[in-house]
Design a protein around this nucleic acid. Structure first.
Lengths: 197, 197
DNA sequence: AATTGGTTTGACCAAATGGTCAAATGCAAA
DNA sequence: TTTGCATTTGACCATTTGGTCAAACCAATT
């Protein structure tokens, strides 16, 4: 890893931190430079502009997220086990705090998604999978698209809304962490009960 | 309604629009003034500062949201009917787009919630209600706090993440609206199946 | 008509902010 | 040692932005 790559790595790390915490509009190039331990001029040398740097960070985030939704085929697990694995995987990702970042920025500028989705695989594999379960009568008849939304909602929302949940439920950080400890399992169980015959 | 109140109403409406769409950091006082059809100086005459105006808008939003969670006692509906009403009420609110605003700003500055929650009623009425259902064995044993999170997630997340859902599910605006038409009922049904014995 | 008091505004200000540039620095090859 | 090239940086710039202020405006009262 040459010297330039090291600097750029430091920049990307700092930028990820700042953009995810403060959002595009709340982020200052000077702060990114400070956190990375370099000058603002150097920052602009490596990444031409704020938009440029942001694009990079945002795409990296999407790249971490999008593949998560495609873990439904290519193995012999039962659908219950697949739900278990999906909630576990998604919750682990979502806990990093990247989800609110993605949603916030997509909402600021919907075009951020448009290009990306166009070149994605043909169809949502979760939807296809549950359509099949529906057709073969293995689950209670449910619109697979709604199922997709329910799963995503239950997994993603707690991480996005944790400040509110913490306070409304009057939990200390410790108590909240304890509660979320078993969240993936509880969520999977909730979902499975909701759709099994 | 005197002349001054009219102006302030115009300002509040414009400010709500801007703050909800762009967030605190993305909002410009000049734009609020333009949308309200007055000068920036006049805007500052009525609301001392950006923070001041924002506080007002944010508190109004919270005031619309918080009471929604307390519709669980004081009537003779069955718990299934209460779930139905809750999802319907919450979804109606959430459709207005205020939810992402609230979450985004709380995340920017967690203190926005702290003061408010302290002077709220003693305990979350949904949690109390489902605790009772648990104790009297009317539903499948489930941590009522998790239940609270599940309900909120299923109702709130679609409105927050609609850009993503729309595109990932490859739906036109028309198709998406059709899908969301029956969302409240489908969500309630999903939840009821998940916890009934 | 003159006075008064609330309201509105154009002009202006200071600070913040993304971005540029020429000069300096360091380092490897010749 | 010198040359050449990538990297770094302090100084600087133009624009944006929240906020101020004195002067103008206007409706009601005297």
């Amino acid at each position: 890893m040459n010297e330039s790559t090291v600097t750029e790595e430091k920049i990307l790390q700092a930028a990820r931190l700042e953009f995810e915490k403060k959002g595009y509009n709340g982020t200052r190039m000077q702060v990114i430079a400070d956190v990375a331990g370099i000058s603002k001029a150097s920052l602009h040398y490596h990444f031409r502009s704020k938009d440029n740097l942001f694009q990079r960070i945002f795409n990296d985030a999407l790249n971490d997220y999008i593949p998560l939704v495609n873990t439904w085929k290519d193995d012999s697990l039962s659908w219950e086990e697949k739900v278990n694995r999906f909630t576990a995987d998604l919750l682990e990702f979502v806990q990093k705090g990247t989800m609110l970042f993605i949603i916030r920025e997509i909402n600021r500028n919907p075009d951020l998604l448009s290009e990306r989705i166009k070149k994605a695989k043909s169809n949502n594999s979760l939807v296809t999978y549950f359509e099949e379960l529906n057709n073969t009568g293995q689950i209670r008849q449910t619109d697979p698209r709604l199922l997709y939304i329910f799963l995503q909602s239950i997994c993603c929302f707690p991480a996005i809304n944790n400040q509110m949940f913490r306070k409304v439920l009057r939990l200390t950080d410790r108590q909240y962490n304890e509660l979320m400890e078993g969240y993936a399992r509880a969520a999977a169980s909730f979902i499975i009960h909701a759709i099994k015959k």
